[in-house]
Computed example of a mutant assay.
Amino acid sequence: MQPKNVRPQRENNLKIIETNFSIMIEFVLLGFSDIPQFHWFLFGVFLVIYIIILLGNGIMILITRVDSTLQNPMYFFLSNFSFLEICYVSVTLPRMLMDLWTQKGTISFFACATQIYFFLMLGATECFLLALMAYDRYVAICNPLHYPRVMNHKVCVQLVVASWISGLPVHIGQTCQIFSLPFCGSNKINHFFCDIPPLLKLACGDIFVNEMVVYILAVLFVTLPFMLILGSYSRIISTILKLPSNTGQTKAFSTCSSHLIVVVLFYGSATVNCLKPKSNQYGRTEKLLSLFYAVLTPMFNPMIYSLRNKDVREALRKVLHKFSAL
């Protein structure tokens, strides 16, 4: 005869299994939780950085719109790049400021998914825009006679629109794939914002497919544009070295130097996180690198272009003169 308590034990076992694989409704961003004594100091620093980013990139957009000498493809791409930087940093930095202010890092499941999607989409757009800016310099220096025809306004608009929308469906699919994973155990994300590597660390079961998708998309949206940039600049440098005068070489290098510095800053820090998606290797170094390319690089970009570009400096001087005369 079967004991009477068998059925209740089976029900308890089922309840335990259901509890272990419960639906995650919110996450906790650890951020700077290991240094709580510096929260207010960091809030002030990041608030100043955010204001600098908004003002710097906003001014770049303004002067490329109002100054007649900057109405060419190079500065058209630069104005779009500055607008992108404002959007890119606004995905993460306001949330970081709120977490530092409230000293709480809770973020809902939907908000985390939304943040990851826009972070991925805007990051891919930045890679494509940097490649477009390199291609623009390649055509201007290597094929100057064909430049007005190849880089006409219609083509520039089409290229920029393609850069913005190319990653939309892909990253929607990637975000849905990641957030369809079962999450169990801890809900603490060891990062300043929702990102793929630390989030995969919380997932249950096999994440091999997800990691392969990360690698493939990194090749398509990060490595491929970077290879196009390298190819463009290899041709540019080869052409510049063949110029007859040192003056011509200096002028050609000066038009490319700002873009090259921005590329080095962005890719130098982003490549580590994009091409190392294994969640068990995500640590403090990766967090700091992601903080650099997600926050600090957008702050440096307008400074780099304004300090190293004579046309931008002159346009900025004229705009400031007009405002001071009001």
Rank of each mutant, 00 (worst) to 15 (best):
S279F: 09
L228P: 01
L243K: 11
S163E: 07
L217M: 10
I237Q: 01
D67T: 10
S238C: 06
M133S: 13
S279Q: 07
N72T: 13
F81T: 03
V161R: 03
Q249Y: 08
G231I: 01
I35S: 12
M60H: 08
L120A: 03
L78N: 10
A113K: 04
S279N: 04
K278A: 06
L129H: 04
A140Y: 11
I107L: 10
V66H: 12
N152W: 13
V91P: 07
R65E: 14
P198F: 05
F192R: 03
L220H: 03
K278V: 02
E18Q: 15
L145P: 00
N80F: 06
F192K: 03
Y88E: 03
D67H: 14
T19R: 15
S257K: 12
K318F: 08
P148R: 02
N210Q: 10
V272K: 00
L199H: 01
C127L: 04
V214R: 04
F119N: 10
N280H: 13
G231K: 07
F292Y: 14
L159M: 11
F81M: 07
T223K: 00
G248A: 07
L260Y: 11
A294Y: 06
F38K: 12
F128H: 07
Y135V: 01
A294W: 03
R149K: 09
P169D: 04
L243N: 06
I63Y: 12
Q103L: 06
I116C: 05
M1D: 14
P148L: 01
Y138T: 01
R149A: 10
Y135I: 04
K322H: 13
I35T: 15
T92N: 10
Y75R: 09
F46C: 11
D34K: 11
V222W: 09
I59D: 09
Y233I: 06
S22R: 15
L14H: 09
R317A: 14
I216W: 10
F21P: 08
